[in-house]
């Protein structure tokens, strides 16, 4: 990145997939599949996360996510939400690969409530098994520069440290560590989880991350479609601000208007 990249050419790439939107959104927690579709459309996202769950055999003709969020239009990123062991995560993603043929996946192995903090030992174990099995692993992880580096060295195609616990809406609780991860990474870094409103998405982009992943901030807004638009604008604004380079912080005033030619 040379800092002069025109906005229209500003794209990012993960495991050979190129995206122009730097906003990745989840498809969960909406009131209806119609609302899901409208919010995702408004967000401008090209990649969406999806969960893998048992089909309801008593209602096999119930509307399915694919009918509203078509996989030929959006890149599906199957996740392992709800998995608390490496084994469950690997089984889930093998099923996802069979259901959709996708190798690009989101790995998350979570610790117990109330924080659902990433279980890093189990995440390492699952990442190793998945990479060996041919998956391209985008990995949810702790805001820990050593863990992020280790996941990158193992072969994960993107690292996704949390801003704050999943669904908490607390924003970026540790921007310094996120920045450290971004500065040291050779793979894309996405801030995943914790973002609650547009300014926090912009802040993540200003730190220099490649993209932002969020779900509840849109789905749990009073007006999800409007918040989706806000997030789109915020991610673009934050990206521009990062590329533009912010002015230095001064601890004294520095007048913007000329001090010469004042009337007397």
């Amino acid at each position: 990145m040379d800092g002069m990249t025109p906005a229209q050419d500003d794209s990012w790439e993960v495991a050979g997939h190129r995206f122009h939107s730097r906003l990745v959104v989840g498809t969960g927690r909406y009131k209806s599949l119609e609302e899901t579709a409208a919010a995702i459309e408004a967000s401008g996202a090209e990649m969406v996360t999806v969960a893998v769950r048992r089909v309801n055999l008593s209602d096999p003709s119930a509307p399915m996510l694919q009918d509203f969020v078509p996989p030929d239009r959006y890149t599906y990123l199957p996740n392992t939400a709800g998995c608390h062991t490496a084994k469950e995560a690997v089984r889930t993603l093998r099923l996802a690969r069979e259901a959709g043929g996708w190798n690009l996946v989101k790995l998350e192995v979570l610790g117990p409530p109330p924080f659902l903090y990433p279980d890093m030992p189990a995440t390492f174990e699952a990442a190793e098994a998945l990479i060996k099995d041919g998956f391209q692993v985008m990995v949810y992880c702790a805001d820990d520069p050593l863990a992020a580096k280790r996941l990158e060295e193992m072969g994960c195609v993107a690292v996704m440290p949390l801003g704050a616990p999943i669904g908490s809406g607390l924003g970026l609780t540790n921007p310094f560590m996120l920045r450290s991860i971004i500065e040291n990474a050779k793979v894309p870094v996405l801030v995943d989880a914790g973002i609650g409103t547009a300014s926090e998405a912009a802040q993540a982009m200003e730190l220099g991350c490649d993209a932002v992943l969020l779900n509840s901030a849109i789905a749990h807004a009073r007006e999800p479609v409007r918040m989706a638009r806000a997030m789109k604008a915020a991610v673009e604004a934050g990206r521009h601000a990062y590329l533009a380079g912010r002015m230095p912080r001064n601890y004294a005033a520095d007048a913007s208007s000329p001090m010469t030619g004042l009337i007397r």
Binding site: G26, T27, A51, L57, L65, N79, A99
Partner: peptide
């Protein structure tokens, strides 16, 4: 998928049948 037709279910089999739903 290519093996559905040739996979004969046997007593005691445990099947998991999944699909994609909304998730974050």
């Amino acid at each position: 998928r290519s093996a559905y037709a040739t996979t004969l279910l046997e007593p005691g089999d445990q099947l998991e049948i999944v699909h994609f739903i909304g998730g974050g």
